[in-house]
């Protein structure tokens, strides 16, 4: 990548010249940083690398995931190494999947002023304000599915004038949905019961005692579900 075009970026206000093909995360390393905070999966799944930037000459502040975004010339950037969002402690066993639960645990969602900053900032492109609206109404399943791809980077919460910690609200809705609202899985209950009653012990033990050649043969002859 030697013939790569270089661009100027400003990390914490300091200027560095970096290849334009790099992601923001890689460019920081190119500049000489060994990342401690602000770097996790490097694949867009963990939300560790929330980054705020502005392009020189423009007014608008933008947010992104550093591992999933290429550098641009004139980028002024800083990472959000930690966000002091509030998570309420609860016992899932004792909750009911409805709006009252939301009201009790995260009452601030009802102070949403509808500014939509959360949605505009979401690097996953989620409709954050919408899933908060679902939570307000107690429509937890919709909230769960709308928020499902959330990586909990904290950008939404950092911009919220009503102090909502959106990603925690989504997580609560998903857990309530998974536990109480999603249809029950009969075949799972049955199998776990069989195992607890030791119905599968014997067949397993028989296999464990076989020598390698026997196992090989069973393996090579096993039928494969279409």
């Amino acid at each position: 990548m030697s013939q790569d075009q270089m661009v100027d970026i400003y990390i914490l206000g300091k200027k560095y010249s970096v290849p334009e093909s790099l992601t923001i995360m890689d460019s920081m390393e190119y500049a000489g940083y060994q990342l401690v905070r602000g770097c996790g999966c490097r694949s867009g799944f963990c939300g560790a690398c929330a980054t705020i930037y502005r392009i020189k000459g423009e007014k608008e502040l933008k947010v992104c995931l550093a591992c999933q975004t290429k550098v641009q010339d004139g980028m002024y950037l800083t990472q959000l190494p930690f966000f002091p969002g509030d998570k309420r402690q609860y016992d899932l066993e004792e909750l009911e999947p409805n709006a009252d639960t939301m009201m009790q645990l995260y009452p601030e969602i009802y102070s949403c002023v509808g500014c939509n900053s959360c949605t505009k900032g979401c690097p996953q492109g989620l409709n954050v304000m919408q899933y908060i609206a679902y939570a307000q109404r107690g429509d937890l399943e919709k909230c769960a599915h709308e928020s499902f791809d959330c990586v909990m980077c904290g950008i939404c919460a950092s911009r919220c004038p009503a102090n909502i910690t959106h990603y925690q609200v989504g997580l609560l809705a998903r857990r309530l949905t998974g536990k109480y609202l999603a249809p029950k899985t009969e075949h799972l209950q049955t199998r776990v019961k069989e195992i607890n009653e030791h119905k599968h012990d014997l067949p397993l033990q028989e296999l464990m005692q076989k020598d390698i050649d026997e196992i090989k043969e069973l393996y090579n002859l096993r039928d494969i579900e279409k």
């Binding site: 949905t177 998974g178 799972l188």
Partner: peptide, 20 residues
């Protein structure tokens, strides 16, 4: 299977059909 049940009871949203 016990692990899947444990996760399910903790609220992990597995892909399921309408009948569970």
């Amino acid at each position: 299977p016990g692990v899947i049940k444990w996760l399910n009871d903790l609220g992990v949203l597995f892909d399921k059909d309408q009948d569970g």
